[in-house]
Structure formats: structure tokens, C-alpha cells
């Protein structure tokens, strides 16, 4: 029974729609800022992929629909930067 539930949960999570957010970030000064932000974003539940770029001072984050944009902004704030959502695209 446990195995069936696990399979259902796994399948459900794969089927869940994902979104991609582009976030502009203030306060980045060096490549280590990009690493800190990326790692903080990747620690959030539901984040599948995060790319942070110093030259554009922005992040592109792929995440599950169940995760909110506020969660992403909080993750950025947690490591000392401030983020602003530029766009959100649904990937379903």
C-alpha cells in the first residue's frame, strides 16, 4: 500500500505544472553573490532549476506551481539581496 501511495505522489509531482520566473536582483557585487543566491533558491521546496547571472543581475527559476513567487523572493532576501519578479511563465 505504502508503495502505491509513493508511486502516486511521485507521478503527481511529475505531472504538476511548472513555472519559470525571471527575477531582477539588487545588491549583487561579485560572482559569489550569484552563487549564494542560486544556492538559496535551490534550497526552496519546489525549485527545480535556478540560474543566476551577475552580468544581468537577474535569476531564472524553474519551480513547481505549488511554490509561490514570494517564497523565491524570500530566499533571495535571506542571503542579503532584494529581488523583484519581472515575469512568470507557465510551462504546462
Amino acid at each position: 500500500m505504502k508503495r502505491v501511495i509513493l508511486i502516486i505522489v511521485t507521478v503527481f509531482s511529475y505531472l504538476q505544472a511548472t513555472k519559470i520566473a525571471t527575477i531582477s536582483i539588487e545588491g549583487m557585487t561579485c560572482p559569489l553573490c550569484a552563487t549564494a543566491i542560486k544556492r538559496s533558491l535551490k534550497r526552496c521546496d519546489g525549485v527545480i532549476k535556478a540560474k543566476v547571472r551577475l552580468n544581468t543581475k537577474s535569476a531564472k527559476v524553474e519551480y513547481k506551481e505549488s511554490t509561490t513567487e514570494q517564497t523565491l523572493l524570500k530566499a533571495i532576501k535571506r542571503v542579503g539581496y532584494s529581488g523583484k519578479i519581472v515575469s512568470v511563465e507557465s510551462m504546462d
Binding site: T29, C30, P31, A34, T35, K38, R39, K51, V52, R53, L54, N55
Partner: peptide, 17 residues
Amino acid sequence: QFPINMLGYPYAEVDDE
């Protein structure tokens, strides 16, 4: 990642980190 702020230390990347 670029531009680099300064290069007084060794700098290394693994992929984009």
C-alpha cells in the same frame, strides 16, 4: 559569471557557480 569585481584571489567556477 562576469564581470569580476577584482582578481586578488584565485577564481574558479564549477559550471556557473
